[in-house]
Write a protein that binds this DNA or RNA. Structure first.
Lengths: 121, 121
DNA sequence: TCGTTGATTCGATGGACATCGAATCAGATC
DNA sequence: GATCTGATTCGATGTCCATCGAATCAACGA
């Protein structure tokens, strides 16, 4: 496995059903709901929220800094980064001894779009 | 407890630090991260994603319909609705025998804003 | 080649949560 | 008041997860 692992690149599902008028608010499909819930779950921890916050304010962050900034052990930090990577929200790149993390903007924008209210409502 | 319980109405925290230049990507404050993580956790379940999806596509939904649409028991449905209410993402209103749920747009927009990349980046 | 340092994985543990059946509460109707 | 129906709460249970210490892996420098 190389530095950047293969992550899910699902086409952004939206909470607002893209098709036509549902009979009585059918809602999103089962698999879409599952995919979205997985992304939300990846952010459902203060430590991971902080990590993504850091990445949003600096294009890349060294893993060695993450541990100190979230105040957790190296093992726990690696665990959180792994979950974020698995959710496709961040990417990792090894340069020599250090590993740098960057955000995946498309995925975050997908989340933003998912919770946006229907325009015509 | 009346129909509409008291829910958190925290001013939308943002993952992008609103203040000035952080020394080296300090990230969001501890309490803001916690508040955001709580909102994400409220959506970290397919059933709750479906519920919010329904509410985004219909201005209000009867609790009696929710149970059928997510395919869970009434008790479980009530549990999920309670969590969404506690997170301030939905509101409930009792009208006679039935309870109707509506989305809280500000809160969802807060989530959307939180994962939005910094404009000037 | 060896020791050093950073990153990840492994194993264990304590706590949180999704789920449901049963019980209870809240209105409405008779 | 009695009863019916919908909504919520309670208690129990099985599973998932956050956390850390220890072990392992990866790259670099002496």
């Amino acid at each position: 496995m190389t530095a950047t692992t293969t992550e899910p690149q699902a086409g952004a599902p939206s909470l607002t059903v893209s098709g036509c008028c549902a009979p009585a608010a059918s809602g999103v499909a089962d698999d879409s709901a599952q995919a979205l819930a997985a992304m939300f779950k990846a952010l459902a921890d203060p430590a991971r929220v902080k990590i993504v916050s850091m990445l949003l304010n600096a294009d890349e962050v060294c893993a060695c800094d993450v541990s100190a900034l979230i105040g957790k052990s190296a093992a726990t930090t690696s665990h959180h980064l792994k979950l974020l990577r698995a959710a496709g929200l961040v990417r990792s790149e090894r340069r020599g001894t250090w590993v740098y993390y960057t955000v995946v903007p498309e995925r975050l924008q997908a989340i933003a779009a998912a919770v946006q209210p229907v325009p015509g409502r």
